[in-house]
Simulated scan of single mutants.
Amino acid sequence: MGDHQKIHPVVVDVEAQPTLPLVPHGSSSSSEKGILSQNRPPPLRHTIPVIESSKHPPKKRISCCKCICCSITLLFLLIFSLVITGVILCLIFQPKLPKYSVDRLKISDLSLNFDMSLYAKFNVKITATNPNEKIGIYYEKGSRLSVWYSNTRLCQGTLPKFYQGHRNTTVLNVVLTGQTQYGNTLITALQEQQQTGRIPLDLKVDVPVSIELGRLKLRKVRILGTCLLIVDSLSANNLISIKASTCKFRLGL
């Protein structure tokens, strides 16, 4: 056999290329031109889809954004107004915290019960001073005063409800009573501490008050505080000497 030649088949798309009659160059007549024009396939037309772009966001999204912006603006204006009002009131009334002092402490009873609980009754003299010239103080119901020793509450009581005017000093005599479990252990610890001549006691204060600015009565706030007292003894029916007293007070909501 001689040189082998590879023959590749040619695939002709009959539908894509319609068969046309062969006409020699330069010899086409008018009739033949007519036949060619009739057999020529029509031009292809492609339809291009048009995508409409939305230039504006949905109405719901716009309204939601406006609502959030308005809420933030109103909140900012409210906070700003409250701050400005507070500054103006402070400049006009110049508020000061009231002052308190424990002037006397007397134990009416400190004894063990049959169930080994400790019963205590204290009489406390407290002086409350309102140093403000334009602010009155209403002492409301729900106050709590308590005396503690080593994280154990000995007794508790309440302040009376009263009004304290401008630059007024009021002396209060408060009776505190209480009953504590494990009295035997507690009375032993108190007797050992009494031998040193320095017994630490904590007087805790929680008093709801309403502030009066001129003729305006504001909402209730709370006066919270602690007085650390150092006394020489806890003998019943004896006047106890207060060797040291340190008080700290603040306003709470």
Rank of each mutant, 00 (worst) to 15 (best):
F162P: 01
S111A: 05
G136Y: 08
T177Q: 07
S150E: 14
S108D: 09
P160K: 09
K99Y: 05
T158I: 07
K134C: 02
L172N: 13
P95S: 08
Q194V: 10
Y138R: 08
N173S: 14
A128N: 05
L176E: 10
V175N: 15
K106C: 05
L110N: 05
A128I: 09
N173I: 05
T185V: 14
Q181I: 05
D103G: 03
Q194I: 11
N168G: 03
N130I: 01
K96D: 09
D115K: 11
P95F: 12
R167Q: 03
G136V: 08
D109T: 14
L172T: 05
S143P: 02
R104M: 11
P95N: 13
I137Y: 11
N173A: 04
L186Y: 05
T152G: 02
A120T: 00
N123C: 02
G178E: 12
G136F: 04
I135S: 00
K134N: 12
N123T: 10
I187R: 13
L105T: 07
G136N: 11
I137W: 13
T152Q: 00
K134A: 07
G136K: 15
L145P: 03
T180A: 13
E133Y: 01
C155T: 09
Q164H: 06
R167A: 12
K121R: 07
I126N: 05
T127K: 14
Q181H: 10
F122M: 06
K141M: 02
R144D: 00
I126T: 02
K121V: 00
L154F: 14
K96L: 09
T129H: 01
I135Y: 01
V124G: 00
V147L: 12
Y139F: 15
T177F: 04
